[in-house]
Design a protein around this nucleic acid. Structure first.
Lengths: 211, 211
DNA sequence: GTTTGTTGGATAGTGCCGGTATTCAATGCC
DNA sequence: GGCATTGAATACCGGCACTATCCAACAAAC
């Protein structure tokens, strides 16, 4: 198949595909002549993956590049790819040298320790959580372990389901896709359902009661 | 207090504060003379809120403007403010006229109906969920009700805790802030804990097993 | 009362990001 | 033969969230 067909089937313009190739998100097709190149199913799958990571996961192009580089490296184990993806999801903030931030960060580290979770020291999700603590406290809402418990319970049970879903598949490509889907896309599933559930509960609790 | 002190206490530059005033996110201080204005505690709180919505919630300035406009309108009830916030969170996509999209959207609507959830037809979270379905199916991962059950359970239980947290407070300003914290900031808490839980489970399941 | 600094107001500019558009010559297809 | 497609290179664009600069009017310190 040539690039125009790839464009039709992926739903991306030829320009955009060329752009992704230039940015190193995908190898170029195998040139048949100087001005023709042949693309195959794997290119199509790659584009679908890129599209999912961009449009659903809202990942920057540079992050996707890192993810696919890890994907293609067979020496990278599943858990390391997990790490790469987590890192790509960000946040990409520089921890400010602020006492409130350091305290929040310490709280996060303590929480992880108490839960007995095996999580890298530099996992960006730690910073993300610390950031929420800082913001909540600045707004005058202290964060306690009790507040967090329902979230921890929910997160744990969902994560276990997700890993089981991934573990079932066999060929590396499939497993890797399943893992990325779990981390990036199902995260949005959780977010969307969370918002819908909130609206439902809010409707029952607050609607028709203009407080 | 004048603007420079407001800047110090909020952690935002004077320029940025002026920018937010210009954009209508905050009223200007009460002018004492032509070249002096006085700001008070409410300005500071507003800036902290804006900062939380921008830095933690990653909301665009234009969306924050809509939220604070609803906040300030006492005729807007809590549930309507909830709706405004949900709308601000997006996604702001135009539903493509694609059969796959329509099917996914129909699946979402059916799911919401089956769960008996009271959710507006135009809630953006519906579109977000539909978007994930489309992406998952394009990648070759069908989505079933069974797959979703753990997410629904988790989302529901978390949402109930959140509404209870909001319902306790009394003065409107406090209630409103609590609601925004619940929807926008605690959403990030859930996301962060979800990622941390995933990494933990992944470490136990995949690490030191370079498949 | 002069100097130094701050303020509001206005306008312009910046940096990043994710594409788009354009141009070109070589080539394939009918 | 003539039109469309391709790869490659380069330039350009629009949105966004600031950031910088300038100005005249003041205020405060000395």
């Amino acid at each position: 198949m040539q690039i125009s067909e790839l464009s039709d089937r992926s739903g991306l313009t030829v320009q955009t595909i060329k752009f992704y190739i230039r940015e190193g998100l995908m190898p170029k097709g195998s040139s048949t002549t100087v001005t023709r190149a042949e693309y195959d199913q794997r290119h199509l799958e790659r584009l679908r993956l890129i599209r999912a990571l961009r449009e659903v996961g809202d990942l920057p192009v540079a992050s996707i590049k890192k993810i696919v580089a890890s994907m293609e490296d067979d020496s990278v184990g599943l858990h390391e790819l997990f790490g790469t993806t987590q890192y790509a999801l960000g946040p990409h903030i520089v921890p400010p040298n602020d006492p409130h931030w350091r305290a929040a960060r310490e709280d996060v580290d303590m929480l992880v320790r108490e839960l007995g979770w095996e999580v890298g020291d530099r996992a960006p999700a730690r910073a993300l959580l610390a950031q929420t603590f800082v913001a909540l406290r600045r707004l005058g809402f202290p964060v306690t372990l009790t507040d967090l418990r329902p979230y921890v319970t929910a997160a744990t049970s969902v994560a276990e389901h997700e890993i089981n879903r991934v573990a079932l598949d066999n060929p590396r490509t499939l497993t890797v896709h399943a893992m990325l889907a779990s981390t990036v896309i199902y995260e949005q599933v959780l977010t969307a359902l969370h918002r819908l559930a909130q609206e439902d509960v809010s409707a029952r609790r607050f609607a028709a009661d203009p407080s």
